[in-house]
Amino acid sequence: MTAVETAQPERRTLTGALGTFTSRHAAVLPTIAAVAILIVLLVGAQMYFGNFLTARNMSALLLDNAYLMVLAVGMTFVIVTAGIDLSVGSVMAFTGIFGASLLASGVPLVIALPAMLVSGAAIGLLIGVLVQYFNVQPFIASLAGLFLGRGLAFVVSLSSIRVEDPALLWLQSTRFRLGDWYITPTGIIAIVAVVIGALVMHFTRFGRTVYAVGGSAQSARLMGLNVARTTVMVYVISGLCGGLAGLVLTAYSGAGYPRNGIGTELDVIAVVVIGGTLLTGGRGYVLGSMIGVFVYGTIKTIISFMGAEQSWTHIIVGGLLLLFIVVQRAIVARSERGS
């Protein structure tokens, strides 16, 4: 049998290299765009304010958005399977107030923490089972999760509960310093979540199945992959991240509050999309979502530097979201025409 030549002839030209790049790494382009936007924002802000790119400011960027970053990790898993999870904000509120009330009634953190994570994961499990086994559309199933989380948060307490537990407060108050740079344990939790998320997505069969399901669930099934388990698992992971974010936010604000995270699901979806994840599934990176969080945080910081209304944040992030969605749509339309 003769070898059939199908590969492009090797030619070391600029266009050839570009062709190889786009045929291999087209999926990274949106994330690269996000990095570019982040750099432009940071440099622009520095030039405008003169005192923007300081160690203090940049350290605060991670600190202030740690909970968002944790949520974004879970949301990336879900969106890459072409699903969506609207429940994350209220799951975070519920686990936060739940943990705070446990701690307030004298339960030690070693028990309260797993309880928070498990309760978050349980809501995720419920959503995943509805989606996978009962053919419920993800946004409807996670809407049930949203109602449930928010309602349960108010069942735990109608008002905020202060946290006195030293271990939990330590997570926020401790600052590991390197010159003017610092990082808190909550920041470390967020970074660790991102790293674990990225490794799982890239280096495990489960992670690759997440991508396969997002590419085509039917193909994945016919390829013999375990689609059902994977679909349920991504929602469990998202719920787990909701629980972890509840911990981080409770530590950050020193209290559990049942109204926390109203509308946060939208912020999370926005940062994940801005970070380069395709809402139609199959493409995206946890690291990209981290970039998305930094873009979000930077916009917020710039606005407070300018002394403008914080509501501008949502308008600008909404605009960026629109931009990314339209560009994604154009890319998809082009690849549809191409095939």
Binding site: L266, W312, V317, I325
Partner: peptide, 23 residues
Amino acid sequence: VLGIQPIIATLVLMLAGRGAALL
């Protein structure tokens, strides 16, 4: 016209709308 999926298209305004109302 642009053919964006409805849930995504209306998400933009869902996010930005309240910001605009606050302004």
